[in-house]
Write a protein that binds this DNA or RNA. Structure first.
Length: 337
DNA sequence: CGGATTTGACCCGA
DNA sequence: TCGGGTCAAATCCG
């Protein structure tokens, strides 16, 4: 979920703050994003139904799908309302169970462990707790994994994929949070700022799909996406961003209506302008920025998890566990599912 | 075949 | 000496 990664960095952007955001702020941010998503869904619903009026099956299908999306937002907002820090303060931890989401796991968790001692002097570190440790919009390459004393889970070490070619110093260390939460949370410690931010013209065309290893190693940017704008530099005029955002929302609206119409008309591809359904060419979304990993779920980490509730990023992060400090035996896949 | 991941070994600061 | 962090050869994978 894109909102998760945005949340993870929303209080920082390029000017990184260190330490986790206050739970109340995170909660408010989640509610704000969900509310916005709900509103946009309603607008999309109105636009789609207007565009598909009188088209029988297509109109009915659009009504159903968008109704379900709207309902999902409503449920999430209700969950967040019952999970508000104020509500949590009123209700003891042993209160009746409710559906738990990765996000509310994050906000219900107490203060994260104290920041780690920096190995190098003056190297700033940013620590966050997230259910999606890799889904932060950057491409990472794993260079090590180690079991850490007094922890139940190994720590993984990642470097920016542009570490070599652009001398990007960014690194992050990911470790599953201790505890017996059904939904795993990960401590992610970022060190150094990214130095690999390319000008938009240099960015790979995310619409080309999988373009081999080179393309896969490149950061994925979503045109108009706010965290991308942040990433592209603090020198961006903030007032311009407001205009850009309005234009982006209008573009999103047109794109969604067009793609929905294409889907309902049985079209399979939307990336060819000649094949578009009239509103404009629609690019298939880029693959989620997930660092490839061949790790398999481990017996400790995976127990009791509902895989369907997790995105690929989460699933890939269940590391195998072994006995010695650095190596972790690969479990039999057949025993895991 | 090239790039990504794994993992045993090594480095180095406390 | 211990343990976190990194290196680099082996291995995996598309």
């Amino acid at each position: 979920m894109q909102a998760q990664s945005r949340l993870a960095t929303s209080s920082s952007g390029s000017d990184i703050t260190f330490g986790a955001a206050h739970p109340t702020e995170e909660h408010e941010a989640v509610v704000r994003e969900l509310t916005r998503g709900h509103e946009l869904t309603a607008r999309l619903q109105a636009e789609a139904l207007r565009a598909l009026r009188g088209q029988g099956q297509a109109e009915a299908t659009a009504t159903f799908i968008l109704g379900e999306v709207s309902r999902a937002f409503t449920v999430c907002l209700q969950i967040m309302a019952s999970a508000s820090p104020a509500a949590a303060a009123r209700a003891p931890a042993s209160s009746s169970p409710r559906p738990e989401t990765p996000t509310d796991s994050a906000v219900s968790l107490g203060a994260p462990p104290p920041p780690q001692r920096a190995r190098e002097d003056n190297v700033p570190r940013k620590r966050i707790l997230t259910p999606s440790p890799l889904d932060d919009g950057y491409q990472w390459r794993k260079y090590g994994q180690k079991r850490i004393n007094n922890t139940n889970f190994p720590r993984s070490y990642y470097r920016c994929s542009y570490h070599r070619e652009r001398k990007c110093p960014a690194q992050k260390h990911v470790q599953q949070h201790n505890g017996d939460d059904v939904r795993p949370l990960y401590d992610v410690v970022y060190t150094h700022e990214h130095a690999c931010q390319a000008a938009p013209a240099e960015l790979p065309d995310a619409t080309n799909g999988s373009g081999g290893a080179a393309a896969a190693a490149a950061p994925v940017y979503f045109p108009g996406e706010t965290s991308s704008l942040r990433r592209l530099g603090a020198q961006v005029d903030r007032t311009q961003l407001v205009d850009d955002r309005a234009a982006m929302e209008e573009r999103e609206r047109q794109v969604l209506v067009s793609s929905l119409a294409c889907v309902l008309q049985g079209r399979e591809r939307y990336d060819d302008p000649d094949e578009s359904c009239g509103v404009g060419a629609v690019h298939a979304p880029a693959a989620a920025p997930v660092a490839a990993s061949s790790e398999l779920p481990g017996p400790d980490a995976g127990e009791g998890l509902d895989v369907m509730d997790y995105d690929v990023t989460d699933a890939l992060f269940w590391g195998p566990f072994g006995t010695d400090s650095n190596s972790y035996g690969t479990p039999d896949v057949d025993t895991l599912f």
